[in-house]
Design a protein around this nucleic acid. Structure first.
Lengths: 222, 222
DNA sequence: ATTACAATTCTTGTATACAAGACTGTTGAC
DNA sequence: GTCAACAGTCTTGTATACAAGAATTGTAAT
């Protein structure tokens, strides 16, 4: 965090938000943050402005910044868009992937197999992230990659919740298999469809999401 | 711009960028902007921070803010993503549009017909914007709407350039017809496809874009 | 006891001051 | 004549001071 204070603060606070260190609805006191990071209010404010522009915090005039609290419906909408973007990335990846991309994808896939076999949710979570990033990269569209990374990051906490659902890890891994197959064999539309369905919060998974959200909320407050 | 200075500055500068008042590559001097808007550097900086977070300006450490200059390839990528998002909006709109949405869409379509008939590029540009917004609205996905509006805004200057191409207005309007038909008859996939192709910068349109970009660049510097 | 109003305190919003790095222009040397 | 180095200036980055609005608490009245 040495070189660029504002950027560092932004990352630090953003990280705090997506890791639920700062919970939705929480007020972010400028003075408090400034003290905590050992800087003045100025860079803190500038970092908060950036987060506000991204949509992670809301700044209400004269009333400070609060962590935005997306309702279940909005989270659903975000997953809906994420599904589309990932589908697009998969489609492009199927057409454009290089040998290097192929190796990265297969390596990430293998790692996911390991962590899903030993049933380690935390490890799977990270390996899964690597897997999806490999797809983004293989799309070779820098703008799309940025959009995917940004949205993926925002959905981090909820993605993590989903893995808690029984058997989700195994199911997820199986879906990965079909995705890898489609991408590597160049079937753009199949890759798109599989990825879209892999991400989308459809049917049971929507009620699962609501339930786990409610459970988490309860756990946090009690 | 009275109520919230930073927000107002952000909008003002952002507008200046998408209307080419501040050209890509131009340095945005904090002191100059502050003087121009009659405020101090503090709110100007905060506004620039927001624009930096959105990706409209780039802040290089100790070297100030410059308007980002997306190369042709990056602009192409942005249109590519926009096409996908609009396609998604169209697909959702086909399934979810209400009677009110239907009326708005038809009204916007009629306006486009008028302005394309009198061959008024500026008017068509605005009516076209209204048309696309009507589709976003009909998707009834607030997050998607926000994403579409944001990207649409960023692509404004290039969209405008495209209308200069011979017959593009007439072609555009005809494409609108197919889109309206698909959405109102509930054909989600047809709506998606038509919109995607309407937005995408494919084939000739890519070289047209490059050419008009180059022409504009030349005109601006001379 | 509860509610409403007022005063105080606290926080945000903006301006300004100060420090440090980048740019520019000039001078000197090769 | 050209290139490099140094000095001066300018701009950014951060801190602090000051003003104004919001929240809270206390008191008084019903």
């Amino acid at each position: 965090m040495a070189e660029n204070i504002v950027q560092g603060l932004r990352d630090e606070i953003e990280n705090g938000i997506v890791t639920n260190q700062y919970v939705p609805g929480e007020r972010l006191d400028e003075m408090q943050l400034a003290k905590h990071f050992g800087v003045s209010r100025t860079p803190v404010r500038e970092a908060l402005m950036q987060l506000s522009a991204i949509g992670l915090v809301e700044i209400r005039p004269r009333r400070g910044a609060v962590v935005v609290e997306p309702g279940p419906h909005r989270i659903y909408e975000m997953f809906e868009v994420m599904a589309e973007l990932e589908g697009m990335a998969g489609s492009l990846a199927a057409r454009r992937h290089t040998d290097a991309d192929r190796n990265e994808l297969l390596a990430a896939h293998a790692k996911c197999e390991l962590s899903s076999n030993i049933d380690d949710a935390d490890t799977y979570y990270y390996d899964n992230e690597t897997f999806h990033r490999a797809i983004y990269t293989a799309s070779h569209s820098s703008f799309l990659i940025e959009q995917c990374l940004a949205l993926h990051r925002r959905l981090r906490p909820y993605r993590r919740l989903q893995l808690r659902v029984r058997n989700r890890m195994k199911t997820s891994f199986n879906e990965h298999g079909a995705i890898v197959q489609a991408i590597l064999s160049g079937e753009a539309e199949a890759a798109r469809t599989h990825l879209r369905e892999h991400i989308a919060v459809q049917g049971d998974r929507f009620s699962d999401l609501i339930a786990t959200l409610a459970a988490q909320r309860k756990g946090a407050s009690g």
